[in-house]
Design a protein around this nucleic acid. Structure first.
Lengths: 213, 213, 213, 213
DNA sequence: TCATAACCGAGACGGTACGTCTCGTCTTGGG
DNA sequence: CCCAAGACGAGACGTACCGTCTCGGTTATGA
């Protein structure tokens, strides 16, 4: 028997051996815990979040939390992952540049909203625990990297982009500035900036197009 | 009498009136506190750092810490700022591109070392407290932004770079990928990557130079 | 079906109706529980004894314990009663005084050994639960009282002892000092003391013998 | 500086070094803890007594309890010792026998009342912890033993009693039956029984007096 | 022979309390 | 007025057990 959390296909946080004996895990409690965690993260923040409080709010014994999550970070991370909007799907309009632009536009919208706060918290959490970091990378960053890189590769095969650049680097140049703004509060994430950024980054790898359009 | 911490000219964390009477602040205690904090941050990390422990290690009363710092984050941030290497000075070799390349190379070296861990911790801390965020931005990120932007501007004036790009955006494209790698552990910060990045970013704003060199 | 514990004829602790159908009680588990309980009582004492631990050690589900014993005290008491040495039989040598002396000597030997610790623990347990107290009195103290009183009565009928004393009081004067030493650790239970005590107590009820022998 | 508990002259439970620095122990809290403990012992018994509850009731942090008492037993023992009536003083009427009779009469009265319950609980507690046992012996049993033995010795010197008996044994014969009845609930402690007991025990060591008066 | 019961192991569950730790505040006495 | 030492009320930590409750599986009748 495996974890009955709805993220089981992505995260391997809560491994459950199958002893084929003993009472089964209570799905209601599991969800109540993650829900309570998320609500309390919103209300009082990670710092002041206590598993004691989560247990009380979820109507659950503390031991039940400790049975399934190794620490506060991992619990918070899983609750945040449930809350973050799923990755904006990347279509295939024929123009990879257009596909990327659509994705980045949608991403910037999400980061301006709830997801922004959530992602910011997840990255902060990840700094204090390697396992938590792994969960974030595996479930947030990597899927986006994979998707975007494949669009870039498609574009390169089509002749839209040059082929002599590390596509992972291009991904970093697209995502990192947004995350930096998110984490340093140094500036809002606005549409115009995204456009400038796309012009500069994609322009530099564009083929048969002058850098200035 | 004022705060004798060496950052007093920048941060207004520790505000001390000058009552012109009574015993003066003990500089030895002050340093012992920051030193103990830094050492313990290295040993056990921010999470497990306790003011109780810092006081014991520094041979100081807890009240003395509370007298001068409002919370754990502020104390940690100050101790980290003391420890982070000063910004690599940016010279003027005649070539702005070369100046930037030198700076970025040096930066990547620093981030691979002690400074990397320190910066990573500072950014994480800053997510949980606005004041801490302000201190980090004012004392770490902004000075680097100002310096790099001025080099970029110099280059633009010299005709090395085009003038139709937001220089702050360029700064982000240079710094953010490094910080992202630092924060997500997704890849080490290696020299070759820096070179690729510089080629792509600076290449795209270079004037009178083909993107392919 | 009834309780198959070997004390069922005396204690009515475990009352089981006979449903005439269904699986029968597992005697192996039953013994394993009492054995594990006794061993753990020796190893860690009553305070730290947990039914959780007993279940684990006995290789038994917790529910099986709760099915047959109402609480920790009852379980411990039953396991101790199994372990306490049976009452030293009191013979009839012709001299009641000699019979009593033999019994007391044997008793003091037992109390110096395993039985001593066991009795001590049983008395302590009994202070916290009336039912437990009843079991202890019925199964330990009363049988000894009855036996000793009958020897005393026999002696009185024979003309060894005076008949104007409460034989229960004499029993108390014989047993209580031993139990007191056991419970207060104020002195070991040594042979010489027993002799002094017998001389004093039995001497005072002896007939046709000067107090000074 | 020493323990400010009002029993400091007798018990050495709470040893306090004199660091000559730091805040001093709060006498109000100390008393509140012992009071709360005693009240709760009466209300719910030792088994269900929790330091958590004591702390809450006393309006005190749990750590304050753990700072000054090593465990629940020691705390309960000290609170009970405060509650037990002081030893009935033994006068000197000229007749040691009379003095002892007065003491035993008063003792049986006390044991029928609050002190009885308290002593019973103290003895039970003492079975689970050696230190607790020591406290009980030192503060309850020994003072009574010393006092009674000295009266017996006085009687022997006066020629009331024979001198060839262990006075400690006589003390045991006087006290132990009362404690046994207390602990086994086997009988109430009544006046007539005390008289029988005195007649038998003191009679047997009496000089120049027929055993039957 | 097969359904019905009761038993059993395992172990999850909501709870309570443990004993420890740290928080931020508050005396102390000394400098 | 500063300082160290350290007691204090508060409350979370992570652990251990409590007594109850599924689970799947195992005996034993007796219909």
């Amino acid at each position: 028997m495996t974890c009955n959390c709805h993220l089981e296909h992505i995260i391997s946080l809560t491994f459950i051996s199958d002893p084929a004996t003993g009472r089964r895990r209570n799905a209601v409690s599991h969800d109540a815990i993650l829900d309570a965690t998320y609500v309390m993260l919103e209300e009082i923040g990670f710092d002041k979040l206590s598993l004691e409080g989560v247990a009380a709010r979820a109507g659950v014994g503390k031991a039940t939390i400790y049975r399934w999550w190794p620490n506060k970070s991992a619990l918070a991370m899983e609750s945040l992952l449930r809350a973050v909007e799923p990755m904006p799907p990347i279509g295939d309009s024929g123009s990879s540049r257009q596909d990327i632009e659509d994705h980045m536009t949608r991403l910037s919208q999400l980061l301006r909203g709830k997801s922004g706060r959530v992602v910011r918290e997840m990255i902060a959490l990840a700094q204090f625990d390697d396992e938590t970091m792994r969960i974030f990378n595996d479930n947030y960053l990597e899927p986006r990297r994979v998707a975007l890189v494949s669009v870039l590769r498609r574009g390169a095969q089509r002749g839209e982009f040059r082929e002599d650049f590390d596509l992972n680097l291009v991904f970093d140049l697209l995502y990192a500035p947004l995350l930096q703004r998110l984490l340093t509060g140094s500036a809002d994430i606005d549409e115009r900036q995204i456009q400038s950024q796309l012009k500069l980054v994609l322009g530099s790898i564009a083929l048969e197009q002058p850098v200035v359009q």
